[in-house]
């Protein structure tokens, strides 16, 4: 699709992009710290990834190859819309292959294929404040971050264990960055948490409605919070993928009929398709 000449490159004006880049640089300098920024109205509703789109717009260059995933899939409404948005407003090349992409905007997942140096992973974040549901006052949570008072975060995990017998938080699992800031990794499954740390790619987090940007520079130390006697565990459905047979990828449960039939498939569609092309087959593959 040819880029529309009615928009500046990547939709936002240059001043706005500079403002966002300054926030990103500050975020990279203080890993895990939530940097306030003047979030703009975007031509999509809040909750559809306005934060991620603004961060992507600020980091995209004409030479980039862009990929968008929503819950791991390249072909859902949200992913398709945002990909088309940047095709039209920036004219950048797009791809669905994780290895080919230089900028990947994501919602709720980290790709299965390990990221490499030079890649940027942009997360859409609904609620950047990990302490929000424990302490509703923003003034108080900021103070808690600045004074490193994170006992409350463990109260949440304590409640999980006392109610369910194990840490039942399965997504948006809080992490501690470089032994300093507690960070909400956005609603990725906790299966993906180990991929956050020591990652060669740059990871940027944008929350549009909440007007916050935070970041993890490459090879950052990221530790998932836990108790000594209830250590963190990256969990997934205990099945192989029905289509490609992969046993190491995060799976979606799909209901296939009204008689209780179901199958488990990779949530990362690119990973699954690449494996099928390479000849791997699961038990449900046609």
């Amino acid at each position: 699709m040819t880029p529309s000449s009615e928009y500046n490159f990547a939709y936002l004006d240059e001043q706005t992009k500079r403002m966002i880049r300054r926030a990103i640089l500050k975020g990279l300098a203080i890993p895990g710290y939530q940097v306030p920024f003047a979030s703009r109205e975007m031509p999509m509703p809040y909750g559809w990834g306005t934060g991620g789109v603004q961060v992507s717009a600020a980091v995209l260059t004409p030479e980039d190859r862009f990929k968008v995933i929503d819950q791991g899939a390249d072909d859902t409404t949200n992913a398709v819309s945002i990909r088309t948005f940047f095709e039209r407003t920036a004219g950048v090349a797009t791809t669905t292959a994780t290895t080919d992409a230089t900028v990947i905007q994501t919602r709720h997942r980290i790709p299965e294929v390990p990221l490499t140096e030079g890649q940027i992973l942009v997360y859409q974040v609904p609620i950047p404040e990990p302490l929000r549901f424990l302490e509703p006052r923003e003034s108080e949570t900021r103070k808690m971050h600045s004074l490193e008072e994170y006992g409350l975060m463990h109260v949440k995990l304590y409640e999980d264990i006392s109610r369910h017998g194990h840490i039942a938080t399965s997504y948006a699992y809080p992490v501690k960055v470089e032994a300093r800031y507690v960070m909400d990794p956005s609603p990725i499954p906790k299966f993906d948490n180990p991929k956050l740390g020591d990652c060669p790619a740059i990871q940027l987090f944008g929350a549009g409605r909440e007007q916050r940007i935070y970041a993890l520079p490459p090879y950052t130390n990221v530790v998932s919070l836990d108790f000594e006697d209830h250590p963190f565990e990256a969990s997934k459905a205990d099945h192989p993928c029905g289509l490609c047979g992969a046993e190491d990828s995060y799976l979606d449960e799909v209901i296939v009929d009204d008689a209780g039939g179901r199958m488990f498939v990779c949530s990362d569609t690119d990973y699954c398709e690449a494996r099928q092309t390479a000849g791997h087959r699961g038990k449900d593959a046609a």
Binding site: L152, Y158, F227, H230
Partner: peptide
């Protein structure tokens, strides 16, 4: 927990 207890 606020003063560092981490054993459930």
């Amino acid at each position: 927990m606020a003063v560092g207890a981490r054993h459930y």
